[in-house]
Amino acid sequence: MLLLAGIIGFMGPFGTYMRDGLPGRIGHWWLLLMGAYILVRPVIWLLRRLALRIDLSVSITVFSGVSLCVVPLAFLWRNVGRTAFRDLDGFTGLLPFSFLCALTVLVVTHWAEQTDRRLAQRGILPPPADAPRPEGAAATSPAEPALRHRLSAGFAGPILALQSEDHYVRVHGAGGSELLLMRLRDAIAEMEGVAGAQVHRSWWIAHRAILRCDPAGRSWLITLDGGLSVPVARDSVARLQRAGFLPAS
């Protein structure tokens, strides 16, 4: 935040370059940006866990909550930076600026988390907290995919399917599902050694999990063990038929 405050302070937007020296402008903008971070960052953390608990879309929930932070953030800045508040023509100019700053905190937070995960995959950093390795993982059968090590010890049964949900992947098992913060293609890569296929842009399924396949218009609907229904993309039908995932037409 100090680096960003230094850049903004050097630029001196909204007429601040005429009012204070560079150190004063940097300090002024640092206070405003830290106010945004202190307010928005905990909201992101809380809303993510709320969305996961009640099975809502994580991206929509977090974005909506961050958008609502704009009003208290504007009031905070009004009290901390009264001069800047006047320069922005009151709430008319301050609310859009507050929204941009709150959105910046959200984007930077997401970028930092994704960077940590990429570094963890390369072994530079330890795995993130929401991708725990269960106790006894070192003794796990080598036949199990690497993705299994990211799941909790309470995850029941083999992995049946992977479902993309915003920036998360829902891992379906025989006894329930768990969410992991990662891309679907990365999760599929960690299923190496398990016979399966991506049947839709949002779905990967294990071949052994297929219970039945039913026609659905010009496509198919695959039912897995446990009753989970998975759609098949039309442009994937021929490929899946050749691979033996779907019956021939």
Rank of each mutant, 00 (worst) to 15 (best):
T16I: 04
L211F: 04
R150K: 14
P231Y: 03
D186G: 03
A153T: 01
Y168E: 04
A209C: 04
L95Y: 01
L151S: 08
L32P: 00
G65T: 09
A5N: 09
R25C: 02
F63L: 14
L160W: 00
V108K: 00
L246E: 06
E178C: 07
G27T: 10
P72T: 00
L32S: 07
L184N: 10
F91N: 04
H207A: 14
L33I: 12
A120R: 13
R53T: 12
G176F: 07
A161L: 08
R25Y: 14
L119H: 01
E178K: 03
W77Y: 03
R19C: 01
S64D: 04
Q121F: 09
T104S: 12
G226E: 11
S236M: 03
D87P: 03
A216T: 09
Q121K: 00
V171H: 07
Q121L: 11
R122C: 07
G244L: 13
P158A: 09
E178G: 05
R234Q: 14
L95D: 03
P128I: 11
W29T: 02
A36R: 03
A139T: 13
T115V: 05
R234H: 10
S57C: 08
M11T: 07
P42I: 06
I26N: 04
L2T: 13
H200I: 04
W203S: 05
M34I: 10
A143D: 13
A238Y: 09
R185L: 03
A153Y: 00
R148N: 00
G15C: 13
W204L: 09
D87C: 07
R86S: 06
M1C: 01
L88I: 02
L240V: 03
G123H: 04
G193F: 11
A197F: 14
L3D: 05
R118H: 09
T104W: 13
R82L: 10
N79F: 13
T140K: 11
E190W: 08
S236C: 11
A51L: 12
G24R: 12
M11P: 01
A187P: 02
R25V: 11
S236P: 00
P142L: 09
S236F: 02
W30C: 08
F97C: 01
A137Y: 13
L211Q: 14
F10E: 06
W29Q: 10
E144T: 12
R86M: 02
E113S: 05
A161F: 09
R49W: 06
L228Y: 10
T109E: 08
G6V: 12
A197C: 08
D87H: 10
H207Q: 15
R118E: 13
L46C: 11
S57P: 05
